[in-house]
Simulated assay, not measured.
Amino acid sequence: MSTMTIETPGVPFGRLLRVESEKAVDTRAARWLIAVTALLIIASVGLPLGLPDEFDQSPTGYTGATAIGVLSVFPAVVILLLTTEWTRGTILVTFTQEPRRLRVLAAKGLAGVGLGVLGALLGFAVAMAGVLTADVVLGREVSYAVESAFTGLLAASVLNMLMATGFAALLQNSATAIVVFYVVPAIWGAISVGVLADVGEYLDSNQAFQWILEGDTAGHWPAIFVSMTLWIAIPLAAGAWRVATRDVRS
């Protein structure tokens, strides 16, 4: 007598993405980080308003200020999304419900990118409010060239969240991933002097993000490509391999 095997359909990716998006904002820590990010974005617009000689009175100048909030704290939310389950040991439950691990990783990564897009939209809206304030209230001569300002902030925010995703997937520990994500690029930027100066811009993620944010990519694409490969593509690939192969009971 032949037996008939009934295959259980996998979790639809849309549902998986919705669940992971809810997880991203469903903890007290995540909510506090999002609130701090929003406050930083709003507060940082005071820099170009208060220091007009130091910042261009244009959307690009103001998004350069609001990017402080968008790029500094927000990545910690996606790091926690990817690492908390490993730290607490609940990842076994997740992979039991959806054993295709790379789909879970993709859903978590896209949820993080979605947060990055929302952060960029908020940063841009606050920046434009600052430009209008400088023009209408303070009577300054301002520019309203918004294209490069918005695309630069959006690209930098999305790439920054992908970088956080790669570090989190690779390290799989909340504290370690947060420390490495914030400290290692800063250390590299600080020591890129002397004999390292010639190669420093090719390996400095902060400089690459600054070029992208300001729309100053002409002549810098090779350095940006190398930097993004080192800090985003390689950690993402290595992280995906580790997620796919790690024993969840370890």
Rank of each mutant, 00 (worst) to 15 (best):
Val11Trp: 08
Phe13Val: 01
Gly14Asp: 03
Gly14Ser: 03
Arg15Asn: 04
Leu17Pro: 02
Leu17Met: 06
Glu20Pro: 10
Arg31Ser: 13
Thr37Val: 09
Thr37Asn: 13
Thr37Leu: 13
Thr37Ser: 12
Leu39Gln: 09
Ala43Glu: 08
Pro48Tyr: 02
Gly50Glu: 09
Leu51Cys: 03
Glu54His: 14
Gln57Ser: 05
Tyr62Leu: 08
Tyr62Asp: 01
Thr63Ala: 00
Ala65His: 01
Ile68Ser: 05
Ile68Asn: 06
Leu71Phe: 04
Ser72His: 05
Ser72Phe: 12
Pro75Lys: 04
Pro75Thr: 07
Pro75Ser: 07
Val77Met: 11
Val78Trp: 03
Leu80Trp: 15
Thr94Ala: 08
Phe95Ala: 12
Gln97Lys: 14
Pro99Gly: 10
Pro99Lys: 12
Arg103Met: 14
Leu105Lys: 08
Ala106Gly: 06
Gly109His: 07
Gly109Phe: 05
Leu110Tyr: 10
Gly112Ser: 10
Val113Ala: 07
Val113Trp: 07
Leu115His: 12
Val117Gly: 00
Val117Ser: 03
Leu118Lys: 11
Ala120Gln: 07
Leu122Cys: 06
Leu122Ile: 08
Ala125Gln: 01
Met128Leu: 15
Ala134Met: 03
Ala134Gly: 09
Val136Pro: 03
Gly139Val: 11
Gly139Gln: 11
Arg140Glu: 09
Val142Leu: 13
Tyr144Lys: 13
Ala145His: 12
Val146Met: 12
Glu147Gln: 02
Glu147Ala: 04
Ala149Leu: 02
Ala149Lys: 05
Phe150Cys: 09
Thr151Asn: 00
Leu153Trp: 00
Leu153Cys: 03
Leu153Lys: 03
Ala156Asp: 02
Asn160Leu: 06
Met163Glu: 05
Leu170Arg: 14
Ser174Thr: 15
Ala177Ile: 15
Ala177Gly: 07
Val179Ser: 02
Val183Tyr: 06
Pro185Leu: 10
Val193Pro: 00
Leu196Phe: 14
Glu201Gly: 04
Ser205Gln: 09
Gln207Thr: 14
Phe209Ala: 09
Asp216Phe: 06
Ala218Glu: 13
Ala223Gly: 00
Ile224Phe: 10
Phe225Asp: 02
Ser227Asp: 04
Met228Asn: 07
Thr229Lys: 14
Trp231Lys: 08
Ile232Trp: 04
Ala233Met: 13
Ile234Asp: 01
Ile234Trp: 10
Pro235Thr: 06
Leu236Tyr: 07
Ala237Gly: 08
Ala244Tyr: 11
Asp247Trp: 09
